[in-house]
Design a binder for these strands. Structure first.
Lengths: 340, 340
DNA sequence: CTGTTAGCGCGTTCAT
DNA sequence: ATGAACGCGCTAACAG
């Protein structure tokens, strides 16, 4: 593999001159340019970015540490991150933590060694260790989707509490009085907030909050399935179910089908997260829709700004609104209907 | 940010001793180990992998250049690649080409500069330029999902021709005689092969191949929608439709719904690619299912082998079988039924 | 306009 | 068991 010195020799100039021509920096004659470019082309010279980075302390690479790229929500976020990063010449290293502390810490550690210019991190828990580690090395981090209490940081996330609140208010408006919620891990802020929104909506309508109707689990299809199965066996059965994310909703739908029940006739169902329109022929679920693309885009833009101007310390907390999308997965409860 | 020299000073040893302790290579006393580890911890020393890579010519990083991570097929492949790479300590840089030559070339060029250890590439066309570029730098490439005619290379792909053949044979078995196919770009091997399988199935059953029933487009929902709309307007309307991938199938379903038609009553539909079971509550489409996870896993393992032993030149062509999954999207054609 | 020197942080080589 | 010198490939700083 040709180095800058090989090119220099062949062109009959010094390495620094090659550097100047190829980076178009400093002065050089037209004749020199031609000679250098010719030599570079003939040798198929590819500059070594590692050496460059070693000097410049920039790798033009971002780390995207999320839970599972397999969830279309994260897929869309990843796409947005990659798009946005590319507009400024950055590449993206992708990592899946599967919500495991250990993987998260391992990735952060490796990526720090690789000297990525910044991190987009979906924290697995409220443990601040990974973020502290990153900060100690002076590398910018933007926390994605989830907040960590008492942590001063740049955060870009969606309005989980409000979204949940609206969903539940909608259900209450349809006359529902017994609504169960199944959601993600209790250590994850989005799960907590969605439950908070649920609580607030009930409270504001003077309805009791029954702790036996609140279930934490994982943001997976399996977990949604299991939790929903549990819920459906209860007597009395709740008239509506609130799924904490798209995967949980899918799991719940499977459980409901398996129990021989129908949505919305036998039970109403709402969910956080939409599935991307491209994946669904006939959208059916009433949801609080987030904007994963926007989430990824804004987070990346913020991160790139932090990389460009590392001084600033006015942490930004960006909260993206959620949209209530009413479709056909809910039914009014007879006799108690309050509105539509 | 602390360097190896800072650690050495604090521990009262030479930098090389620090290197030996932290890499656990060569000899050093237990006392030295303790002192070095203490100093490293106190300084929060993070070794600079750039410097290491500059010497070792290894970055422990792979490039995954695919068309669009947003398609669940590629999402699953990406997940498999990341999982497999991680087992050997490699990270993955993700790039979306959107089927554009220019983006593809740009990415390849940048990633060569970054000295990734290997490429997993889904070629946008039969243009061998990107692959040639990579090879000239002595970097291993594994071609993913698509083959390039007359190119000697490691390729891991699915059996497109055979999968299409089986789908069409299945339709013919149901009595269909007029089957349209809508698929991806004509410059992409998978699209070609799926049409070849379609042709072969018809030919083997003595049925004419009508060029007016073959449509190339893009592997996107929009393209599927547009092409299907065109097909549905034809008189006579084909009795069955073969969608070249999952996105095209979704677009086709939208067009069919919009035309007020029902699957399978009014038209039968089959597709290449399944949607991941996790994304679908009630699988309905009859498909030729590929194994995207297996595709990504095998390709990555092959690439890692090439990286470990760069000498070998016996190109591997791995073709993964496709599975015909019969569900409820097809109906026998009355009066001409041949079998089930 | 072009070149020399030096150093980014690390690990191989050879010496002690 | 430990260290000094050197170079990986590149570019900033300083001549000329």
């Amino acid at each position: 593999m040709a180095t800058i010195r090989d090119v220099a020799e062949r062109a009959g100039v010094a390495p620094i001159t090659v550097s100047r021509v190829l980076n178009n920096s400093g002065y050089f004659s037209e004749e020199t340019r031609r000679r250098v470019e010719k030599a570079a082309a003939e040798l198929q010279y590819v500059p070594n970015q590692l050496a460059r980075s070693l000097r410049s302390n920039r790798t033009d690479t971002l780390a995207l540490v999320l839970t599972d790229i397999t969830n279309p929500f994260w897929t869309t976020v990843a796409r947005a991150v990659e798009d946005t990063a590319a507009t400024q010449g950055f590449n993206v290293i992708l990592c899946n933590t599967d919500e495991q502390e250990e993987k998260q810490l391992q990735y952060v550690s490796v990526l720090l060694r690789k000297r990525v210019d910044g991190f987009l991190l979906v924290p697995v828990s409220h443990n601040v260790e990974p973020i502290t580690m990153i900060r100690q090395q002076g590398v910018p981090v933007v926390v994605l989707d989830r907040d960590i209490p008492e942590l001063e940081a740049d955060v870009v996330r969606c309005a989980s509490e409000e979204g949940a609140y609206e969903l539940i208010r909608y259900l209450i408006g349809l006359g529902h009085r017994d609504i169960a919620v199944i959601t993600g891990p209790e250590v994850v802020s989005t799960a907590q907030e969605r439950v908070n929104g649920y609580r607030r909506a009930l409270a504001e309508h003077g309805l009791p909050v029954n702790p036996e109707r609140i279930f934490f689990g994982n943001y997976t299809v399996e977990s949604g399935y299991e939790l929903a199965r549990g819920v459906l066996q209860r007597q009395p059965r709740p008239t509506a179910l609130f799924a904490g994310n798209n995967f949980i909703a899918i799991g719940a739908l499977k459980a409901i089908r398996e129990a021989g029940l129908q949505v919305p006739q036998d039970i109403s169902l709402v969910s956080f997260d939409d599935l991307p329109p491209t994946l669904v022929v006939d959208p059916f679920l009433t949801v609080a829709a987030q904007s994963p693309y926007e989430l990824g885009r804004q987070a990346t833009e913020l991160l790139l700004r932090r990389i460009a101007e590392p001084e600033s310390c006015d942490w930004q907390k960006i909260v993206l609104p959620t949209e209530l999308v009413v479709r056909r997965s809910c039914q009014a409860v007879a006799g108690e209907r309050l509105g539509d």
